[in-house]
């Protein structure tokens, strides 16, 4: 089941440094939500708080509330490891595990969680995930080769396959196309369109056209001034954002008349 995410008054710190301040938003289930904004305004930081990856960094912490289908993500009784199984993540740079084959990379999340599974089930899962990531046809003959041997775009789709193999409900993507060529990019955009029917997707991008193409809703983050914490300026349906935004600074940023 895809899930919606409610964020209220979320402030995010690195040690004493306040990186993002007071975010409120509701991320719809089975929709694509895009975050845009200038570099350093805290898009990645915010994204990583949505599956508790933020606290992996020493000294990092949050204040405020993130609710996923009625449960508070930062409640003391919540196991962050379980959260990350439900809410998967794809990173900016493709990062397949270098010691593993393509096959092992895909089922890494399942296998390393020590779930025993029959060979036939594993095979089926690998095929399903790779098909889901639009990679099956390209790699089906070399599943036992190292994942690092693929091209950058293929590696990124392998990482997406790896993320969806654990069957999460939400998929977070941090600039998944920024290291890729236009063809790989459009392959991944197509993929996002397909995945939308099953997953809640949140994507960070620097590419305005991409945000306009793939997302249903868009959030614009900005810095009040250099050295100030980032904050959410506007959160609206994408069509409205790109045609008739509420905030003048959003319009300035989108139309390129920024800073």
């Amino acid at each position: 089941m895809a899930k919606s995410i409610d964020v209220s008054d979320l402030s995010i710190y690195y040690g004493d440094f306040l990186a993002v301040e007071g975010v409120n938003m509701t991320i719809r289930a089975k929709a694509v939500t895009a975050f845009i904004g200038p570099s350093g305004c805290g898009k990645s930081t915010f994204l990583r708080t949505l599956n508790r990856m933020h606290e992996v960094i020493p000294g990092a912490r949050v204040e405020g509330k993130v609710m996923v289908s009625g449960q508070s993500l930062y409640d003391p009784t919540i196991d962050p490891v379980a959260v990350r199984r439900r809410i998967g993540m794809v990173f900016q740079r493709p990062n397949p595990f270098p010691t593993m084959s393509i096959y092992d990379n895909v089922i890494a999340g399942v296998k390393l969680n020590s779930r025993k599974m029959r060979k036939s089930d594993a095979d089926a899962l690998v095929e399903r995930s790779l098909r889901g990531a639009n990679l099956w046809n390209e790699v089906k003959d070399r599943l036992d080769r190292p994942g690092m041997g693929l091209s950058g775009g293929q590696q990124q789709r392998l990482c997406i396959a790896r993320a969806i193999a654990v069957e999460p409900e939400v998929l977070l993507m941090d600039e998944p196309c920024s290291a890729l060529d236009p063809i790989s990019t459009s392959a991944i955009e197509d993929l996002i369109h397909q995945l939308k029917s099953e997953y809640t997707i949140v994507i960070v991008t620097h590419n305005m056209q991409q945000a306009a193409r793939v997302s249903d809703e868009t959030g614009f983050f900005n810095l009040k001034a250099a050295g100030q914490p980032g904050h959410l300026v506007e959160f609206n349906p994408t069509t409205k954002m790109f045609t008739n935004p509420d905030e003048p600074s959003t319009e300035a940023y989108i139309s390129g008349r920024f800073g």
């Binding site: 990856m53 992996v56 490891v81 199984r85 998967g88 993320a163």
Partner: peptide, 24 residues
């Protein structure tokens, strides 16, 4: 980022160390 990739799959830290970091 290999460690992060592993955490993001919901793999506990100790398994990340044993299965991802050490083999690498």
């Amino acid at each position: 980022d290999l460690r992060e990739a592993s955490y993001a799959l919901g793999i506990p830290k100790w398994r990340t160390i044993v299965k991802v970091v050490l083999p690498t």
